[in-house]
Design a protein around this nucleic acid. Sequence first.
DNA 1: CCGCATCCGTTTCGATACTG
DNA 2: CAGTATCGAAACGGATGCGG
Lengths: 215, 215
Amino acid sequence: MTAKTRTYGDACGIARALDVLGSRWAMLVIRELLFGPLRFSDLERALPGASTNMLSYRLRELTDSGVITRRRLSPPASSAVYELTDWGREVEPILNDLGSWGLRVSKPDPATLSPTSVLLFLRGGAKVDPKTPDMVFRLVIDERVFAVSLHAGHVKVVSTEPDVPDATLECDPGTVNDLLSGEIDLETAIDTGRATIDGDQSKLRILIASVADEV
Amino acid sequence: MTAKTRTYGDACGIARALDVLGSRWAMLVIRELLFGPLRFSDLERALPGASTNMLSYRLRELTDSGVITRRRLSPPASSAVYELTDWGREVEPILNDLGSWGLRVSKPDPATLSPTSVLLFLRGGAKVDPKTPDMVFRLVIDERVFAVSLHAGHVKVVSTEPDVPDATLECDPGTVNDLLSGEIDLETAIDTGRATIDGDQSKLRILIASVADEV
DNA sequence: CCGCATCCGTTTCGATACTG
DNA sequence: CAGTATCGAAACGGATGCGG
């Protein structure tokens, strides 16, 4: 059954992009894959509200149109993962811009927040003074480990274990977001048990402050 | 009946943007409004395939969320127009990027092409040598007049009558597109009656060539 | 003609249940 | 874990009609 998706039938590049990315959940699936390959169930967890049904269908569509690929992991762990193709990775700046634009939309009331969203926000929102000394953090959100590094005023976020981090911060996505948007401060987060810190707390404070200023 | 649109229920900026722009035709409506206010029927013509039904609903939604405004024209012409708010105008760069990304998607078979799409393409695709002398054109597509100017290697497209154009080009959207993408040349277009030219043809040729090179 | 409401068939989506 | 099957609900597309 060849998926004859509904098309805009418009030769414009925008319409053609939407023919591929315009259906519900498509862009959010891509958002989730921005920090590396994920399994079906990872996506399911990151996108509650998307039915398994929809997910598998969208994944097939995106695979067919060449935005993502399905790959089987090597023998020991024999599960399948989905990952962005080179072309798919090129939507990242678009999603970033869309994300900044969307900040002016009021938050939905019961709101989820995936680790990925927060990390994108961190990466995109930070404009740090280039004279700030370099630093590396180990960020643990929802069991997933990320290396967050500050180098020459540029924030980098990668989905790996950092070597020699200056500090480790472990907490849930909501807390990271509240910290970055300045809604709570680090002390409160620690005291209320929402965050666990290990290492150089002052450096972490610098990073957080620089992002919070932007917002 | 307050439009309680389906929401992603996700606090991420991307998801919130999609709560507003994610439904079918929404972004294309915005695309059409990028060059200035339009009436309901103008939108209808530019977006065949969108039912009047859908259009009026989308327009209300976009108005409610503050992306566009509805304004009544002054007395003589007492019709209403829709136009982007400042915030709405900020999606332009996003749509441009989306448009470039989407060029790699194969064209739908029976494909329409609105004047707006072509002009966006013209504006976005042209990287002209800054040493090229300035020029101004009068472009007439589907009865709509635009001023296309080349100044210091930058292409500007505005929806107004230009004063003192170097040349006038009148044709349908498809032809402009074919010219810009190098699929036909100016001579052929004129000979086959697809384009009508008045004024300095050589200058027009320079503009066209510089865009076609990009593609 | 313009802006929209209404009716109706089709497609897409969402929730739950169920299988390899 | 990684999806498919099923089914009701919502969104969409097309046609028509109606008051400015």
